[in-house]
Design a protein around this nucleic acid. Structure first.
Length: 271
DNA sequence: CAGCGCCCCTGCCCGC
DNA sequence: TGCGGGCAGGGGCGCT
């Protein structure tokens, strides 16, 4: 249930359980994810140490001496730490088991996620090479986004959700950040003012950072194997609230589809 | 190239 | 209660 905060929460949650541990086996129960999982390559990982767990955008990178396991959770993917011997449930597609009996288990009902093996620099991989800046880095700033948006006719919401523009801004947080910044999601990106982008950049950073902080509270449940993704729905001011009153002006929020994704905004507060 | 629709897949919810 | 339709937190790909 991954937007960037969930992926980062997952990274922080799993890393201490698996890093610097030796893999004993990799089990792939269903290799038919978004792209076929190269099963035999992963089975060669037995005996190797998982050095580190990194993240680029919504991709998780499990570092080994020989290369990286590059994992994407798609719409419905999740990772949890379980103990060896725990029977798999439906849609538990991959297990990576370690010497101490810890198992990293990948679960993904819709199978929109993916698992690649990458040798060499993972950031040079085709899927990562052209990604935009990390939203919480200094590289994501008003100068950058304003320049990138000039002459773009695309609506600002799909624009900021484009991972080649900036990574990690999914449907929920795009909706929320645009609400906070008072920007109408349908407005062409190229006609959003520099001032408005200043607000938007700051609100994107804030909403993501806040969500990561909150993700921390669901972390223990998540990793413990017991908890729900725990999505702070109560905090959402726009996403999922079509027809309900705007928290600022009480006018009913409007819901439209933009780029095949539901989009909620206030016609009074967002211009 | 920019921009847009399609599609991958399962589960769940709603209305009839 | 059963069933069809629509929608779900993503994003790469192929077409115009």
């Amino acid at each position: 249930m991954p937007e960037l905060p969930e992926v980062e929460t997952t990274r922080r949650g799993i890393a201490p359980h698996i890093q610097q541990k030796i893999v004993t086996s990799v089990t792939v129960r269903n290799p038919n994810l978004r792209w076929p999982v190269p099963v035999s390559v992963f089975q060669l990982l037995a005996g190797s140490e998982l050095i580190d767990v990194q993240r680029r955008g919504k991709y998780l990178l499990l570092k080994f001496a020989q290369g990286y396991a590059m994992l994407h959770l798609g719409m419905s993917g999740s990772l949890r730490i379980v103990k060896q011997g725990e029977p798999p449930n439906t849609h538990d597609h991959v297990d990576i088991a370690f010497v101490d009996g810890t198992v990293l288990r990948y679960h993904d009902p819709r199978r929109f996620g993916s698992l690649h093996w990458v040798e060499g620099d993972p950031l040079s991989h085709q899927l990562l090479a052209k990604l935009g800046p990390e939203p919480l880095s200094d590289a994501f700033n008003v100068d950058y986004i304003f320049a990138a948006s000039r002459k773009r006719k695309q609506a600002v919401k799909p624009f900021i959700m484009d991972s080649h523009v900036v990574v990690g801004v999914g449907n929920i947080y795009a909706t929320e950040a645009l609400f906070s910044a008072g920007i109408r999601p349908t407005k062409p990106a190229g006609s959003v003012s520099r001032k408005a982008f200043e607000l938007l950049v700051s609100d994107i950073k804030q909403v993501l950072a806040n969500a990561i902080t909150q993700g921390g509270t669901t972390l223990r449940d998540f990793v413990g194997g017991d908890g729900k993704p725990g999505y702070f729905k109560q905090q959402l001011k726009a996403y999922g609230r079509g027809g309900e009153p705007c928290v600022v002006c009480q006018k009913p929020l409007k819901e439209v589809r933009l780029g095949q994704r539901s989009t909620v905004y206030c016609t009074a507060c967002q211009r």
